[in-house]
Design a protein around this nucleic acid. Structure first.
Length: 612
DNA sequence: GTTAGGG
DNA sequence: CCCTAAC
């Protein structure tokens, strides 16, 4: 007999045989999990289409060169054709302006991710803190294009609310996450097909099951001409091959992705940091969203701090001249209602940025990739007296208070995902905006490429905020493996309590379109063929196992059975719920005669009149 | 490996 | 979403 491992269970059910499954009827009041979120988001849809075309036709253009200060708009969207077997997905990335909006329809909820907000700024014999101060003054730092020579001073007064659009604050990456933003595949994107759009921009792809971000770069002329997939580029494929059909094994074999020698535990640990330390706010949002609004736009800005260029010219001996071309602002977490105006979005982002900076951040200094801890040493003592060494100078953004950076974060060892998944009140009270990483690097240097080569797994943690260098920048110094201190922001107590190999997957609310696909499949296939449902309608969604689909159906039936007032979460269209009930009713009666499925389905239509 | 149901 | 039992 299997011994129940659960400890918090008052009673050990292990000895209690379950009834035959055919008679096991669920009676428990299942928590309403139907708060499906992340339904379709069509903002920028038209742009997406356009960009898709362009991306297909342009491969080596230098388009991106002249537009580096534009937003990089990454759109992932899934269009589901109800009667198609499989959803049709499109994804693309592009540099563009947020203002190039497109018709947004209702489709629902959306996750908008601002990967970074970037400001060009130059420190010229200026203490970093001054720049920081400037950043905190609600003064958008006006970008200066890609000619660093033109960037002498870039702290200019700007309209606080116009930052995004007017270049005051430059968000270099927007990810608009559609219903199934998770199912992003670079596989289908020919290498370099989007090249023209990001000469120095990143393409971050979110990998399904593990919330990994793999990041691709196109570097400027100074370095490499082509995309350099991160070392883990093959990960997805490898992973896939290792997955069981239903994907469940993945969560238990995550360590294989580790290409280093750290071993499985360490890998898992890193992974955990990535998944849960890195993005706890995502979970946080879920709950806050649930609490605050029915329809909300989740704006997540995650980014780092990085510089695109540093110029230095030793003047009169000791003087050091630094130019930090840009700051990337670490992860922000913002929530605005779907009905909010673009202007208010801008304001919100602005406030968030300001608050973030105002919260206080520290700057770390890296020399030759090593952190310089002694603040009392002079630069020359630190070895920064010569130009060559300056090239190896880097900066990191670190949480402001060195003592306990994570003010509001609980310090127990329960990992964040669990906490947030449990709607921890403590988490709920967290200011929705916080510096998450300190491993964002501003640096100067010479070879961007080596950054990846030397620090392959940095992408694990900061993939989405890795900073692509501008084409003419001096590029980025190789950054050493992250220092523990540098990323101690979130996981104060890093040792996860549960050392087990297993790690709960992150919750992935079903989008309306997914629900629709599910309903449609079940209408045709019935409720006992989840594997078929999976293969039929969710074959591409590697993060949806047939068990997930079954579970979702379960909750859908429950949701449909209760009054609308009792429902929580993102509303599922009543029409869909009706279909759920109808299909459920039908298949409850007809599950025996499984032989003539299609006939049954056809009959079902006739009988219920609710389908199709 | 799938399915059904409880946790 | 996880876990387990029963297929």
């Amino acid at each position: 007999m299997v011994v129940k491992r659960r400890l918090n269970c008052g009673f050990d059910f292990s000895g209690v045989p379950k009834a035959p499954r055919s008679t096991r009827r669920k009676v428990s009041s299942e928590r309403d999990d139907v708060d499906s979120q992340l339904t379709a988001f069509d903002l920028l849809a038209s742009l997406a289409g356009k960009l898709l075309e362009e991306s297909e036709s342009s491969s080596t253009s230098t388009y991106g060169d002249s537009q580096e200060d534009h937003l990089v708009v990454k759109i992932k969207q899934e269009h589901e054709l109800v009667y198609n077997d499989k959803p049709c997905k499109s994804e693309l990335s592009h540099q563009g302006n947020l203002s190039s909006k497109s018709p947004s329809d209702n489709t629902s909820e959306t996750c908008l991710q601002v990967s970074s907000l970037e400001n060009d700024c130059v420190l010229e014999q200026t203490p970093v803190s001054d720049c920081k101060m400037a950043l905190g003054l609600k003064q958008p730092l006006v970008g200066c294009g890609n000619k660093k020579e033109d960037c002498a001073v870039h702290v200019e007064q700007g309209e606080a609310t116009n930052g995004l659009e007017d270049g005051g604050l430059i968000a270099d990456t927007f990810s608009l996450k559609g219903p199934s933003h998770e199912s992003v595949h670079l596989d289908g994107v020919p290498n370099g097909s989007l090249e023209g759009y990001r000469n120095h921009s990143k393409l971050a792809c979110r990998d399904d099951d593990d919330e990994n971000y793999c990041t691709y770069y196109k570097f400027g002329d100074k370095c490499n001409k082509s995309y350099r997939p991160m070392t883990r580029v093959g990960y997805r494929r490898i992973k896939k091959s290792m997955m069981t059909k239903h994907g469940r094994a993945v969560s238990r074999s995550k360590c294989f992705e580790d290409t280093r020698t750290d071993g499985c535990l360490k890998s898992l640990y890193r992974k955990r940091k990535l998944c849960y330390g890195y993005n706890p706010w995502k979970h946080e949002t879920v709950h806050r969203k649930r609490r605050l609004s029915d329809k909300g736009l989740v704006v997540t800005s995650d980014g780092g701090l990085s510089s695109e260029s540093v110029t230095n010219s030793p003047q009169k001996g000791e003087s050091v001249k630094l130019s930090i071309k840009s700051f990337r602002i670490p992860e922000l977490f913002i929530e605005v209602p779907e009905t909010a105006t673009v202007g208010s979005l801008k304001r919100t982002v602005m406030e968030a940025v300001t608050a973030l900076l105002g919260d206080g951040i520290r700057i770390g200094v890296l020399v030759q990739g090593k952190k310089v801890r002694d603040d009392t040493n002079t630069l020359s003592q630190t070895g920064l007296s010569c130009r060559e060494n300056l090239d190896n100078l880097g900066f990191t953004l670190e949480p402001g208070s060195s003592e306990n950076p994570v003010l509001s974060l609980p310090t127990d060892s329960t990992n964040l995902s669990e906490r947030s998944a449990a709607s921890s009140p403590a988490l709920d009270s967290i200011v929705p905006l916080r510096l998450l990483h300190a491993d964002h690097v501003i640096n100067s240097g010479t070879c961007v490429e080596s950054k990846q080569e030397l620090v392959p797994y940095q992408s694990d943690i900061t993939a989405d905020e890795q900073q692509p260098p501008s084409s003419d920048s001096r590029a980025i110094v190789p950054v050493p493996p992250l220092e523990p201190e540098a990323l101690a922001v979130v996981p104060l107590n890093e040792k996860p309590k549960r050392t087990e190999i297993s790690q709960r997957r992150t919750r992935r609310p079903f989008s309306v379109s997914e629900v629709e696909a599910l309903v449609h499949a079940v209408e045709e296939l019935g409720t006992g063929r989840w594997r078929d449902v999976k293969l039929r309608s969710f074959d591409d969604a590697s993060h949806r196992t047939y068990v997930d689909l079954k579970d979702k159906w379960k909750t859908l039936v429950h949701t449909a059975s209760i009054s609308p007032q009792q429902r929580r979460g993102q509303p599922v269209p009543q029409e869909l719920l009706d279909r759920v009930l109808a299909a459920h009713r039908y298949w409850s009666q007809h599950q025996v005669k499984q032989n003539g499925k299609h006939q049954a389905a056809a009959m079902m239509v006739v009988e219920s009149g609710a389908f199709m």
